[in-house]
Design a protein around this nucleic acid. Structure first.
Lengths: 246, 246
DNA sequence: GCAAAAGTGTTGTCCTTACACCCATGC
DNA sequence: GCATGGGTGTAAGGACAACACTTTTGC
């Protein structure tokens, strides 16, 4: 990066000795991370939001985010936000997109890096005292601060795509789950209805589900078997996809 | 974003009136964009690089990048770099990933947003006087400055995936191309060999290729037909993919 | 015994793969 | 006329979509 201003055309060997001096003159921008934390409950895909603490966004909902500290890696910053807000570590987290519209923040230029995170709602005790931290329906939540609706949409699109290519869904479910729960998850995220028999066939043929021998409890119908996902086996068997399709 | 420090637990309605004051106190980081400019020539996928102008990276190759200006959108910054470097506008450009390792730049913390760009080498006259601007073989180029090898790898992975799902390849070819050229492109990017007959069948069945009625010239064998890609038809017929596969 | 969801198999269609021969051109 | 790559068709196998009935449990 950074050759243009300091190396006019034709000047071939004007090497810059002191990189620190160079960087010192770079323009600087405030940088934040925002976490789009997805959860799944009552057969709905949810996203974790708080009330904005800005007067201009009074009453609006906001993603969980924070400034990036000095010399802090973005991934670390996102994990920190998650940890501070949910107390959870070992959570699935992925950088999705960086948003930089100059007027996206009312306080002036702020660039934000959006992370998507998937967690199992049941593992997470909300401390509701803080800024009305709540789960919201992903597709219907409105009244969002900043460009956070756009950020959620981008991350939701990312999720829809990724869940079809990678076994991400299991991060949203309890460790042991029934096939019905799994199918409900896919239907909620993809916003489609799937054939139960074909769905089962598909997952069984992948051969990554471990039969726990246990069954659902407290259901008022025939209980379904509970499975775990065999992450280890999946990791070993990853294959590279070749298939042109558009 | 940004609620943590200013809204201790339990304090519910401490709304911040002056957003600008808030942002003023945010830590700031130098922000750059780096463009991974892919081209295709001699049946090889190429990437456009210059010599680094930093003493510590003397002789190493570097991506084309620049600092992001005040109040400049990242996409705009990337287009600006492309325009300044190649003189080309209307080029395919896509944000891929943001790199933030604290020590990725020898001059101190610099966060960079990587963009992938695809362009037709034939449309582009290199001004070789500037920092030895050159096309390099994507898979074999070494001796890269900064973390630029990692950035290229990330963008190359992105390209391999995207070209199978979207008609990006045509941005790397002349407007009129033969099916052989198209297949060579796919083989070069995906690093596989494809069956010629099945490849043709696949593309013809998509029905996005327009027969120009013209033929290759200056080839020393039977000339192939030249086609154009029907972008308009493709845009109209975009379909949403549902298919779980991992 | 009834409601509600679990569990299971088959068939047709389409897509993908593998594969071999003739054709047009330059030299 | 020969070398080079262009152009085409078919058959087999695998994946996906559509579809109905029996089983188990709670009440």
């Amino acid at each position: 990066m950074k050759n243009l201003k300091n190396a006019p055309a034709g000047e071939k060997t004007a090497l810059i000795g002191n990189a620190a001096l160079l960087v010192q003159d770079y323009p600087r921008v405030p940088l934040t991370v925002d976490c789009v934390i997805f959860g799944f409950e009552e057969n709905k895909l949810k996203v974790l939001l708080i009330r904005s603490d800005l007067e201009v966004y009074k009453g609006k909902w906001s993603l969980l985010g924070d400034v990036v500290h000095e010399n802090e890696d973005l991934d670390d910053a996102a994990y920190r936000v998650l940890q501070e807000r949910t107390g959870m570590t070992n959570v699935y987290l992925k950088q999705v997109h960086t948003f930089s519209s100059p007027h996206r923040h009312p306080g002036g230029r702020v660039v934000t890096v959006a992370y998507a995170s998937l967690l199992n709602i049941k593992h997470h005790e909300l401390c509701i005292t803080e800024n009305e931290l709540h789960w919201h329906n992903v597709r219907t939540v409105r009244d969002m601060a900043f460009d956070h609706r756009e950020i959620i949409d981008t991350c939701y699109n990312w999720l829809q795509k990724s869940i079809q290519e990678h076994p991400l869904g299991f991060n949203l479910l309890p460790e042991k789950f029934s096939l019905r729960e799994l199918q409900n998850l896919y239907e909620a995220i993809l916003n489609v209805e799937l054939d139960r028999r074909n769905f089962r066939k598909k997952f069984f043929s992948m051969d990554f589900l471990i039969d726990t021998g246990e069954f659902e409890e407290d259901v008022k119908h025939r209980p379904g078997k509970l499975y775990r996902f065999d992450f280890a086996k999946y990791e070993k068997s990853k294959r590279k996809w070749i298939g042109i399709d558009f």
